[in-house]
Design a protein around this nucleic acid. Structure first.
Lengths: 200, 200
DNA sequence: GTCTATATCCAGATAGAC
DNA sequence: GTCTATCTGGATATAGAC
């Protein structure tokens, strides 16, 4: 009952929480929010149905937490690259390779992308998750800035930046989505997407 | 009670069926399979909950029928273009403009695409629907043939045809998906995707 | 043909035993 | 901390009235 014990317990609880979270991530991605039952998560995490409620208040809370992580981590990566002193076209390279190689190497990374794609389409996600999702397209604005910069230096073709950014994100997200759901066996060479940006 | 009346009744029933079907299409696309309740469909179609079962045996039957239409119509368009005598790169043009302009002009067309995208990710769709979805990627094979043909004529860059086709379909599907779910306001110029195919 | 009422089932969340 | 048993709500599908 000393403070030390309390801390240790809190850490154990945090670890267990995280374990449940990543178990749920895979299930949500594979089965969707509505079809993933609390019992499925508990069973996959190796705990009882009831115990799960010691760690999370509800299924919605688990889902919302995962959306939070997905949005912040995908946004963080892009912002980081934007703030380097690379040339704009190099930034595009770095972002593309970063996203695709990461998704190919780490299952969770790919799942987080797929989770966001699904969340865009669900009308009935938890309210807080919906709020967070509203900020999910901020990376697109960063991409627009990079494109505009690249155009003024003649590295990127002249066209509407938001359209190019949309086509690019659609392609990247689509690819990761296809890979996660086994539509394609492996991610293609990220370099395939770069010609979209180049001047004729 | 003459045969004539029977036929007329059958036609009325078919029309009603179709009306229910397209009502369901929009709901499934917006809310997903699990979160779309039979009552939602009935209400949106302006009939009672119970009456819907006169037209369809179950929710799964409605969904399966929609998947059937989605897969066959998307495949049909591509096959049709493949069999023309256009040059390979022109076929790529025609397919891209066909899909994107259609999706922009007709809500159902876009919804069918989104429905297939969602179906790829659902682990728990009805069995028959899952069978049909296995054939959903046949258009990708047609695309590979077009690409190979184009490469041998020097119109398309030399690279693995299946990877290029995957990147292309990911981009097209991703774009329609983004548009349906309001992530982007309108579809970009289809021409933006063509440079992916061109030799350096 | 159409609607309303209901049987049945299933899943989320809670309570109480160990 | 952990599990099992239970309450409760909601959705599918059916049955029966009009």
């Amino acid at each position: 009952m000393t403070p030390r014990t309390k801390e240790a317990n809190a850490q154990i609880k945090d670890e267990r929480r995280e374990q449940i979270l990543y178990t749920a991530l895979k299930l949500f991605t594979k089965k969707g929010l509505a079809d993933t039952k609390i019992s499925d998560i508990a069973q996959a995490a190796g705990i009882s149905h009831g115990l799960l409620y010691n760690y999370f208040k509800s299924k919605d809370e688990i889902y919302t937490e995962l959306i939070r992580i997905a949005v912040s981590s995908s946004g963080g990566m892009l912002e980081q690259i934007e703030q380097t002193d690379m040339q704009p076209i190099e930034k595009v390279h770095a972002i593309t390779y970063g996203i695709l190689n990461n998704a190919a190497a780490y299952e969770e990374s790919a799942c987080f992308f797929a989770l966001m794609m699904q969340a865009m389409s669900y009308d009935k996600i938890p309210e807080t998750a919906a709020e967070i999702m509203k900020t999910a397209m901020k990376p697109m604005e960063a991409m627009c800035r990079i494109i505009t910069d690249g155009q003024s230096r003649g590295q990127i073709k002249p066209c509407a930046p938001d359209q190019l950014a949309a086509a690019y994100f659609a392609a990247v997200n689509g690819l990761v989505y296809f890979m996660v759901f086994g539509v394609i066996a492996e991610l293609p060479d990220p370099g395939l997407l770069i010609p979209m940006f180049l001047p004729n």
